[in-house]
């Protein structure tokens, strides 16, 4: 992967802010919901993000608006959490350590996508955001790295670990309901 200095030299056609809002709003809202785990807080967070983004728009170069806006959203969220400093967060210790029993093979039986997405909410934030942004929202790993302010290698390791934690959660959620011997 090229470093940013090379990656962003191509002149970018800067879209209208209104068009970016139209396209990115669902992504921002889902991301805010994953961060806050609460509908009204998510809406408030996205509202503030749009306001901050609108103010900063004249100085933004127009490249990768999705990761740029997610970065604003996340920074705002971190600022609020620092002020409140009382939000219970899912700790890694609270999540089942991935065991090797059954591995991915234990899952499926026609996984319902919503179950997978719901299971995401039980992961610690760092892993939840890496998996949600890459695997649900379809951002590239470099875009996620930009949005979260971490190196791409960190995104890779959080992604792989997050998927394994997700698998463990799905095994716990679906394992009991799964018919024995139903593995294809």
């Amino acid at each position: 992967m090229l470093p940013n200095v090379f990656r962003r030299q191509t002149p970018v056609h800067k879209p209208r802010f209104e068009d970016v809002v139209e396209t990115e709003l669902p992504v921002l809202y889902r991301t805010a919901k994953r961060l806050t785990m609460n509908d009204s807080e998510a809406e408030d967070l996205v509202g503030q993000t749009l306001y901050l983004a609108a103010r900063a728009w004249p100085t933004f170069d127009g490249a990768y608006p999705r990761s740029w806006m997610i970065k604003i959203l996340r920074n705002e969220h971190l600022g609020r959490r620092k002020k409140a400093d009382n939000r219970p967060e899912v700790a890694l210790d609270d999540v089942a350590e991935p065991s090797h029993d059954g591995y991915w093979q234990a899952i499926d039986w026609g996984i319902v996508g919503q179950e997978v997405v719901r299971a995401l909410d039980f992961l610690p934030e760092d892993y939840r955001m890496a998996v949600a942004l890459c695997d649900v929202e379809g951002l590239t790993r470099q875009e996620v790295a930009d949005a979260l302010g971490v190196p791409e290698g960190t995104v890779n390791s959080r992604l792989h670990r997050g998927r394994n934690l997700l698998r463990a959660r799905l095994v716990a959620l679906l394992g009991d309901a799964a018919p024995q011997g139903a593995h294809p």
């Binding site: 809002v21 139209e22 709003l25 669902p26 809202y29 889902r30 919901k33 509908d39 809406e43 996205v46 509202g47 749009l50 306001y51 983004a53 609108a54 996984i111 319902v112 996508g113 919503q114 997978v116 997405v117 995401l120 998996v131 695997d135 649900v136 929202e137 379809g138």
Partner: peptide, 23 residues
Amino acid sequence: AMRQAKPEPEADAMARLKAGRWR
């Protein structure tokens, strides 16, 4: 499954946000 299961945000919330103070 994850890519296909993006929950659609509530329409009222989207409308409020589109008309928000960023305008």
